[in-house]
Every structure is written in structure tokens, then in C-alpha cells.
Design a protein around this nucleic acid. Structure first.
Lengths: 207, 207
DNA sequence: CCTACCGATCGGTAGG
DNA sequence: CCTACCGATCGGTAGG
């Protein structure tokens, strides 16, 4: 049974993520999850005291693996253009590799019952605030160095987040056309960069 | 009781839209809706044979009022830039005026149970396909006239949809920062247009 | 990790 | 538009 080397807890996390992502929080019952894991419902409560705590743990893991993936690639890069391109590529790579984690993060901003909603939103907005500040700082430097056209760095960061959101939403929710964004990513990036800098990028986005 | 001039059916549609938008389809019960409408649950079944049919009617209404709002404003305009700007403004105006309709449309691409999901997605992808074709045609003309930099019109339309999605997702899901997109819309539009045309727009987006 | 069970609520129906 | 009710399932617990 080398098939069964995963622990029950690991399978629980994986199947719960898949179900929450596909059917939503309220649309997934603990019995559904138990069935996929291959145990009885009551057994799940040895790992989490409630369904809400299970979701919060999944969200925590998704957010941290997401931010880790996005941060690491741009570490050694100095110029703004290269860092943005690296960030874009990390984000798209991650969303392809871990669609369930992306869906979980989206869940947060969508429909969960009242109390849980507040927990989830505060966790997400912590991350969002930190990210927004980092990006604004990055664009501030870019403006100072003349790498982009002089403009309010907060608005540049806003355009950047609009662009990224548009790409990731397409990737997460799209039905059949999912891969058109991926295969045209280089062109999309060129449009974006020309919009903020007035010049064509020299960076290449490789899939 | 001039308070009560609305019919029960009208209140049903309104309250159901509000609840589905806030808590999702599975997260909203027929009892919840009945409570808001001010009748007993059984009475709702005089208007719709099932919860799923209620959702489909709401989705139908949301999609048609959305497309109507977006189409009408760009009717008298000839140049691509002006038409896109009008479309952008209509879309943002509509999402501010009818956030529930927007949320309903998003619901479609998110979590609903299996059978209903297929009905909902086919309805939405019909609309999406039609829209995509229109936009590709519009960009084809723009390329032919030299209004934008020579490029594949399908990819220009893709960038356009990424941009719009990014803005609307921000508007729909945002917690507190909702209005930063609205107040910076002119700047975002300038970035977008410079990206596709290489020149600054002469159109002004007014809030 | 299981069997057995809890009260509450689900979508929906009967019949008026 | 109501009261009264259906079987099924919900999240969660007791006790082992």
C-alpha cells in the first residue's frame, strides 16, 4: 500500500481545499470531506474543533505559500522592471501550480457566514495592506530613478494590482479560455509596461 | 402604508439578490429570504418552483441589465478610444449603482452546486463569447485605422478584459479601498491607453 | 478512528 | 399567502 503513505491529516487538508475551492464553504459539508478522505465525519474533529477552524488553517497555509512563492524570485533583482516581471511570472506560475490555494484566497473575499467572514477578511487585509505598501515603495523608487513616467506611486501600484487581479481572476475562474492568458502573457506584460513607462520592456516572461 | 407599494415578487427578487450576493447561494436558505421578504417560506414557491430557478431568473436579469447599460452609452461614438472610454465608464457606473447584480454575475463563476453550475456557466459563457467577439472586432478596426499599435486584435481584447476584470473585481470584492479605484479611474485609463496605443488619451473619464 | 446520537435546519410539498 | 408537515442532512458531541 505505498499508495497510502500520506497521513490522514495531509489528505484532510488536500481534500478539504479541493472541495472548498470547487463548491465554496457553505456548499461543502464535513461529510463530503470525510467521504473523500476515507474516514467517518466524526474523525475529522480530532484534527480541528470546527469547520471554521479547518478553513482558517487552509487559508493561512495558502496565503503563506503564495507570498513565499511571490517573494523569492525577485530577490536578486535590482531594477523595477525586472522585479515586476519576476513577480508577475511567480504569481502566474503559482496560480497554475496551486489553483486550489488561489481559490481559497478568493473564497475569503467571497461568501462565508458572518462571524467567519470577519476572521477571514482581517487575515486577508493584513496581507493586502503589507503588499500594497511594498509595491508603492517599489514604484516610488522607480519614479525617483526615472524608470517610469512621473506619477503618484500609489496610483502606479493600484494599476499594477488591477492588472494582476485581472490576470489572476481570469486564471482562477475561467472555464475554457484559461490558457489564453498564459500563452499571451508576454504581450500583456508589454502593454502594461508601456503604459507605465512609455517604453517597451526588455524583460522576457517565459512560461 | 405607502411603504408597501412594492409587490411581493419585487421584494422577493430584491432580497434574494442581496442575500445571494452577500452570503452565496448555498449560504442562503429559502427561510432567510422569506424572513427578509416578510412572508412564510412556503409562499416563495408560488413564484419559483425551486431555489435554483430563482437564482437563474436573477442571473438573467442581472446579465441583461448589465449588457444594456454597457451598450447604450457608446452608441453614438465612432473612434475606438472614445468607445472604450465610454464602455469603461458605463461598467464602473453600473457596478457602483448595482453592486448586487455584479455580485450575482460573479457568483456564476464561483460556487454553486453541480447541476446548477452547468446551467449558470453556459448562460454566462454565451454572454462572454459574444462580448469577446465584439471587442476583438472593435480592436481589429482600431488596428486597421492605426489608432493602436499594430498587434493581434484578440490579444488587445484580452488585455482590455484583464484590465476591466481587475477594476471590477476590486470594486466588487474590496472592503474599504473600494473608492480608490473610482477616484483614480482617469489615471488608470491613461495607463491602459498608453499601453495599447503608445500615446496619451484625449478622452476624459468623469465620475 | 469508530458507532451512535443530538437538536436544528435544509429544500420542498400537501392542502386549503 | 398560510399551517403543518416530509425525509434528508447539517455541524457537532459522547463515549469508547
Amino acid at each position: 500500500m505505498s499508495d497510502q503513505k500520506t497521513t490522514t491529516h495531509e489528505r484532510l487538508l488536500q481534500e478539504a481545499a479541493a472541495l472548498f475551492a470547487r463548491r465554496g464553504y457553505s456548499g461543502t459539508s464535513m461529510s463530503d470531506i470525510a467521504r473523500e478522505v476515507g474516514v467517518r465525519k466524526a474523525s475529522l474533529y480530532n484534527y480541528y474543533p470546527s469547520k471554521a477552524d479547518l478553513l482558517m488553517d487552509l487559508l493561512e497555509q495558502s496565503l503563506s505559500s503564495w507570498s513565499q512563492a511571490c517573494d523569492q524570485r525577485s530577490e536578486g533583482i535590482d531594477d523595477t522592471e525586472g522585479r515586476l516581471a519576476a513577480h508577475l511570472q511567480s504569481a502566474v506560475d503559482f496560480s497554475r501550480a496551486h489553483p486550489q490555494a488561489m481559490a481559497l484566497i478568493r473564497l475569503a473575499t467571497a461568501q462565508v457566514p458572518g462571524d467567519l467572514r470577519r476572521r477571514v477578511q482581517s487575515r486577508c487585509s493584513d496581507y493586502e495592506t503589507k503588499w500594497r505598501q511594498e509595491m508603492t515603495g517599489l514604484f516610488q523608487e522607480a519614479v525617483d530613478r526615472g524608470e517610469v513616467q512621473s506619477s503618484d506611486p500609489a496610483i502606479l501600484a493600484l494599476f499594477w494590482s488591477v492588472f494582476l487581479d485581472g490576470i489572476l481572476v481570469n486564471r482562477v475562474f475561467a472555464t475554457e479560455k484559461t490558457d489564453s492568458v498564459v500563452s499571451s502573457l508576454q504581450s500583456l506584460w508589454e502593454f502594461f509596461w508601456r503604459g507605465v513607462s512609455g517604453t517597451s520592456p526588455h524583460t522576457e516572461i517565459s512560461l
